[in-house]
């Protein structure tokens, strides 16, 4: 989908730079262990600016909810209608929700609660990469596959 390109500002630049490197990072208060997305200049809980650091997260999450867009105000996406508009709860902090269009998932057939993995797609406006999410098998299954030893040759 031809997404609008985010234009980084001073606060968001580390997030978008990380996306361009294929990493997902979250602004995190080390005192409160609270992640903030979108990032804010101070921690929502303790109001500290000094304790905020960018932390890389796993890129795993679950579909928290969704709706289906039929009449989008954003011109670039109007030709793509209808499309899925989901929110993803991060594995590290399910209170953090990120938007997704769920490539590969049929429109209006969104499996709420399913495991998703982040990927990064390039946007046409300025080439900025943005996080997108794809439904995948649960993380433990993926880990099991990765750890499976090669079959012994007989």
């Amino acid at each position: 989908m031809p997404k609008q390109s985010p234009v980084p500002d001073k606060l968001s630049k580390p997030f978008w730079d990380a996306c361009n490197e294929g990493k997902l990072v979250m602004l995190t208060c080390t005192a409160c262990n609270l992640m903030q997305y979108p990032p804010e200049a101070t921690c929502r809980k303790c109001n500290s600016a000094e304790k905020l650091v960018w932390k890389e997260v796993s890129g795993w999450g679950k579909i928290h909810g969704y709706c289906t867009m039929y009449d989008c105000r954003i011109r670039l996406l109007q030709a793509e209608q209808p499309f899925n508009l989901a929110s993803i709860a991060l594995e590290e902090d399910p209170g953090v929700l990120m938007y997704a269009n769920l490539p590969g998932t049929p429109v209006d057939e969104v499996p709420v609660g399913a495991t998703v993995k982040v990927e990064f797609v390039t946007t046409p406006g300025n080439g900025q990469k943005v996080p997108e999410w794809r439904v995948t098998e649960p993380r433990w299954k993926a880990a099991k596959k990765a750890a499976r030893p090669a079959a012994r040759k007989r």
């Binding site: 989908m1 997404k3 390109s5 997305y37 867009m69 508009l85 938007y99 997704a100 946007t123």
Partner: peptide, 8 residues
Amino acid sequence: QWSMPWGW
């Protein structure tokens, strides 16, 4: 920047 790319 946090919502419009996905069409929210």
